[in-house]
């Protein structure tokens, strides 16, 4: 998922950096004072997730978690992911500094799209249904990211269908793993701290239930 320096053409780099800047600006405006710790925690989660390798067949995949970040943060995914990706580039050499804009766009824009697709559904679901939407959100965020990565590569000269297909097919295990992980996370959040997920009190939980306000 992390495109490295020297692969994308300059127009792609510049335009995606511009769009990322726009996304970050929108994200920063949307963050309320009380949300800041939440954004920070999910930024840190993303930073770590790339180090968690899950063996799949002969290779291994690592988590990306942009679906979970999308449904919990919405537009704030842009600043959260930008910071995490910057630190990943500096500390681990994932991606690079020149392609930071493109990588942020490819990972954060699906997160925002997933937010608009699934957050309304999640808000009026029961806990079990919410977990299923969580699965859908987690896996579709990855699917969208692979399409975006394919698109960036295509605009830089690689053939779109080949690039996108390769990215998509190789990420099917990641989609499944992310789906399960996001479903589990959503399930847990619904049980213990629904307000993180919903941005507002969880409608399916009884409003005065004591366990939703630990």
């Amino acid at each position: 998922m992390h495109i490295v320096d020297g692969v994308l053409s300059n127009p792609v780099l510049v335009s995606s950096a511009g769009l990322t800047l726009l996304g970050v600006a929108v994200g920063l405006r949307k963050i309320e004072g009380d949300d800041i710790p939440k954004v920070g925690v999910f930024s840190a989660t993303f930073f770590i997730a790339s180090l968690v390798h899950i063996p799949v067949g002969p290779s291994s995949v690592h988590l990306i978690l942009n679906g979970l970040i999308g449904i919990t943060l919405g537009w704030a995914a842009f600043p959260a992911l930008l910071i995490a990706l910057l630190l990943q580039a500096i500390f681990f050499g994932f991606g690079g500094l020149v392609v930071l804009g493109a990588n942020t766009l490819n990972i954060a824009l699906p997160a925002v799209l997933v937010y608009y697709l699934y957050a309304p559904l999640l808000r009026r679901s029961t806990t079990k249904l919410a977990a299923i939407w969580g699965f859908a959100a987690g896996s579709s965020a990855i699917a969208l990211t692979t399409v975006f990565v394919g698109f960036s590569l295509a605009l830089s000269g690689e053939e779109f269908l080949i690039a996108a297909k390769l990215a998509f097919v190789t990420h099917i295990p990641v989609m499944l793993v992310e789906g399960f992980f996001t479903a589990a996370a959503v399930f847990l959040l619904c049980k213990v701290k629904p307000e993180i997920l919903m941005g507002e009190p969880h409608l399916s939980a009884p409003p005065s239930a004591p366990k939703t306000h630990p």
Binding site: M1, H2, V4, S50, V56, G57, P58, S59, S60, V61, H62, F92, G93, F94, G95, L166, A167, V169, T170, H171, I172, P173, V174, L176, F180
Partner: peptide, 17 residues
């Protein structure tokens, strides 16, 4: 899930060259 994970051989998921 397991069957698919075994079928799909992948090289693009590793992140740095």
């Amino acid at each position: 899930f397991l069957a698919m994970s075994l079928l799909v051989t992948t090289h693009a998921v590793a992140h740095s060259v």
